[in-house]
Design a protein around this nucleic acid. Structure first.
Lengths: 333, 333
DNA sequence: TTGTAAGCGTTATCAA
DNA sequence: TTGATAACGCTTACAA
């Protein structure tokens, strides 16, 4: 690979001059600039980013931390962050943390040694205090980590409430909930939204809530327990689509037909919900948008560090599919 | 961040000595070594990888190129490569190429500037000649790019043949195929495997093959065209699971019940096939294994560049699920 | 408008 | 067994 010295030699100027035309800094005579440009062309010269990074202390790399890219919610987020990174000329590093704080810290350590410039984090396990002491910008995505850490999320609580309202509108009269882990902020918010919508109903009992751990199998089992215990349930709000699909399977296993006997609505809007039978009604997040926005925000903070804490919340949107359907016993307009 | 100089000063030695204890090179007196170790501890010193990279011309970073991480086949591969990279102390860069040769080249260019050490590539569009001139190790994964480029794949042709044999064993008598893009090596191999199994059957016609482009929608339409044109079809081998799910949906749209009237088997073994109704029978690749193996191979080639071209082929395995079932009209033992 | 040279944080060569 | 120092390729004072 050609270096700046080779270019300088060929163009018969000093490396400083080459550097100047490279970066558009300082004055450089039109003619010499052309000479340098030609040399760069001839040698197919590309500046060495490592040398640049060493000098600047910055690498033009950002990372995305996700629990596990195999969870179908994360690929779209990853795609969004990567696209945005590329567009702004950053390299994209992907880290699977398995929600393990030690791994998260180990990654941060390792990446700091490479002068990583910033991190978009989907995590519920990283200590807020720890994050605050990381010396590069960090944006929380999808889950809130700490009050005064910048974040990009959706209106989970209100969206959850709307999901339940949708079931009511469809005529459901006993609506249960399969929840995500309480230590994950969005799971808690979604449960609160469910409670907002059902708590004053006289039929409501806390045993209408089951824990599904944001996992397929676990949600399938939760659905079965729920339907066993409460055969009167005719509506189910599931805290995310992955579990929603599990619930679909749970109902299927119990020969309860969806949506005829049981309506199911979930949350997220991942494509998985389009491939099941029946397809899954859901409160869709603008997944790509939030990922992309988080990356933008991060890069902005990297490039002009004066920014304070930024918090953005996007709205979810109902996507009606086959797993919910109007009940006959409720003929309101 | 503390530098090696700080450590040297604190330990009252030269930077050379610190470097020696850091890397376990050369002789260093036990006592001084301890002193240095203590200084490192006290300062919580971490060597600057950028400086190291500059000196060594290597970055301890590898990349994975995939067409699109949102395609459900790739996350597991990405996970495998990332895990392996981490385990060997490499940083993992993810690139979505959209099967666009220009993007692929642009990525390679950009990453070479960062002294990237090697690439695992899933691609059908990158020019083999181009790849051969890349000056770092490249391993092709899942798809073969060029005869003398190291690769990790599965026995697509034989696996496909077995898939069709399975349908036959289940009693299917008219077996069609939804194929992937012919320019993708594994798609072509799978089609050949299909042909191996059906070409001498007297019922076989080339119009039993439809193009599904490795996409859900497209496969759904292909299935509908196929079943419309050839209502006698009672078995369908689909070149990958994503399309298999599309085919399931196509049959559903036409009110053809699977597996009662039509058996469907696909290829890949992604989890998506476990969530559909009916669940999808498939020839499962050892996805994690091949990803992990490709990464290992890559790192091996990086660290001892004497290796020649290595080609490894893994075997696929039948996973029977609900979309195939024994036909009554065939009672062989 | 251009060049010289110091410095970014390492490693490795050579001498002591 | 240890220390000086050049080198990796770049950017940016500072000088000219």
């Amino acid at each position: 690979m050609a270096t700046i010295k080779d270019v300088a030699r060929l163009a018969e100027v000093s490396v400083a001059t080459v550097s100047r035309v490279l970066n558009g800094n300082g004055y450089v005579h039109k003619e010499t600039k052309d000479r340098v440009a030609k040399a760069i062309q001839q040698l197919n010269y590309r500046p060495n980013d490592v040398a640049r990074s060493l000098f600047k202390g910055r690498s033009k790399m950002i990372a995305l931390f996700v629990p596990d890219i195999m969870n179908p919610f994360f690929p779209e987020l990853a795609r969004a962050v990567e696209d945005t990174a590329k567009q702004k000329d950053y390299t994209f590093v992907l880290c699977n943390t398995d929600d393990d704080p030690e791994k998260e810290i180990a990654y941060i350590d390792a990446l700091r040694q490479k002068s990583l410039d910033g991190i978009v984090v989907v995590s519920s396990t990283m200590s807020g205090d720890y994050v605050k002491n990381v010396d590069i910008p960090v944006i929380a995505l999808d889950r809130i980590l700490h009050e005064d850490l910048s974040s990009v999320t959706v209106n989970n609580r209100e969206g959850a409430r709307q999901a339940v309202e949708h079931l009511k509108k469809q005529g459901c009269t006993r609506i249960a909930h399969i929840a995500g882990p309480e230590h994950i902020s969005n799971a808690k918010q979604r449960m609160n939204g469910y409670l907002d919508a059902v708590q004053q109903e006289d039929w409501f009992k806390f045993s209408y809530i089951e824990q599904g751990e944001y996992r397929f199998e676990s949600a399938k089992e939760a659905a079965q327990r729920l339907l066993e215990r409460h055969p009167e349930i005719d509506g189910l709000f599931v805290a995310n689509d992955l579990m929603g699909v599990g619930a679909l399977k749970g109902a299927e296993a119990m020969k309860i037909s969806v949506p005829e006997e049981l309506s199911i609505i979930a949350f997220d809007g991942i494509t998985l919900g389009e491939t099941t039978t029946p397809t899954l009604t859901t409160m869709a997040q603008p997944i790509y948008t939030i990922g992309s926005r988080a990356a933008e925000m991060l890069i902005q903070q990297i490039e002009q560090s004066d920014q304070g804490t930024q918090v953005e919340e996007f709205e979810v949107e109902l996507i009606e599919r086959e797993s919910t359907k109007r009940r006959h016993n409720n003929d309101e307009t």
